[in-house]
Design a protein around this nucleic acid. Structure first.
Lengths: 241, 241
DNA sequence: ACCTGAACACCGTTCAAGT
DNA sequence: ACCTGAACACCGTTCAAGT
């Protein structure tokens, strides 16, 4: 946990004989993870028609493989085009990150296990830093703002990903599941929409509701950053630079 | 994933012969998890001087055991005393949750796997709902506010827990680790304090810095909730009740 | 009602050997 | 330089059997 291939790096070479190389292995891993939510080295080898141990020529171990897979996914994040309002651009960036993570629900489960310093991950991070870099915040506050936003986004996306994986595995919709649970427990605290409270006729799709919830809390956070604070933690750093 | 013992519930009974019962097993599991970050059924049985399979009389499987362990941890959360300002109380509640989670870094890794509807978890949730219930927000906004806050707290605590577990496992401090990585990569995006930027003489303890970061973003979020919004997502629900 | 031992079907990975 | 097969040290869990 929290080691990194990228610190030691290594073999990106191509095999002449078989079709095997690191990118192929990583791509197959992503495919299996998307489909099953999980990979075993043995299953992956089966998918590639090779021996499990042959892959160990290209990756040191399973942990490394997952780190490569995560960086591959990071490469899918669409960087939004520049906007004069840094908050607008930051919001778009957060949305893009969420979109990608939710597209590979397994990714966020492993996200915290690594430093995420692969080339694709760094491309994203650098872009994000550039966006807050254009804000009027002090340099210390820029880092804090970025952390805050992505901690929220991370929490939201983790939640969302779990539901999606659950749905994929059981073939049931979230609605059905919530109704089921509501039969057993009086309160259902972990969904903002309480069962029965929303009337059926203008019920929105769960996905739309989630989008709105996501954006709204993000707006709260962004608004709070630029609001003169009434509490003991000021938004401007005393020794900010 | 996302099933729940609490929906089917069951055996809370006590064995007369041996000292074994569910609470003992769960308590031992928590102890091992705290110490190692992980449990195996076999190791747990060893700890209790019983056969692995004997525990299956009290828990259906490992997943159930973890769900019980999580609820036990939820029981440790200190509910703050009432405060006239609902935001002050909500902040205290978030801090208490974080404190407990960080005290058992493994807990948050498993948190999303369950519905968290055990008795101790529900006690916390109900308290939290009561706190936002005293806010001037519409009922729909109350739920959204609660979700937003705890999504942020979850993201923060997850991050923090990883570092703590990493520290425990390697016996190195976060400072040392950051310095090491900084030698290999130019940028260290996932810490707000860039290595070298903070001068040594008024360097705060990392823990204090984390506390401040946590509180500050929480304040931003809370401030944003009660700020008239300038964006397309209004803070008051059109059909709020 | 409670506990056991043997066995099954998995894992990731080491290691020595092949080409 | 690349790939293999056998083996090791683990898992969680089933199942039939004991008391």
């Amino acid at each position: 946990m929290v080691g990194s291939v990228w610190l030691t790096s290594g073999k990106g070479r191509k095999s002449r004989e078989s079709g095997l190389d690191r990118d192929t292995i990583v791509a197959a891993a992503v495919r299996l993870l998307d489909a099953q939510g999980d990979v075993s080295m043995r299953a992956l080898a089966g998918e590639l028609n090779v021996t499990p141990m042959s892959m160990y020529w290209y990756v040191a171990n399973k942990s490394d493989l997952l780190e490569f897979a995560l960086d591959a996914v990071a490469g899918e994040i669409e960087l939004p085009e520049a906007d004069d309002d840094w908050q607008v651009e930051l919001r778009a960036l957060a949305q893009a990150w969420r979109r990608t993570m939710v597209g590979h629900p397994w990714a966020i489960r492993h996200y915290g296990d690594y430093l995420n310093i692969g080339p694709k991950s760094m491309r994203f991070t650098r872009h994000a830093q550039a966006v807050v870099g254009r804000s009027p915040l002090s340099q210390a506050d820029q880092a804090a703002a970025l952390s805050a936003v992505f901690q929220y986004v991370y929490g939201f996306a983790m939640n969302e990903s779990r539901w999606l994986e659950y749905g994929r595995k059981t073939g049931r919709t979230v609605d059905e599941f919530v109704d089921d649970v509501a039969k057993s427990v009086a309160e259902v605290p972990w969904v903002s929409v309480k069962s029965g409270v929303v009337d059926q006729k203008n019920r929105q799709s769960i996905a739309e509701q989630r989008d709105r919830d996501f954006d709204r809390a993000l707006d709260w956070l962004l608004a709070g950053m630029v609001t003169p604070s009434r509490s003991r933690h000021s938004a401007s750093d005393p020794d900010g630079r």
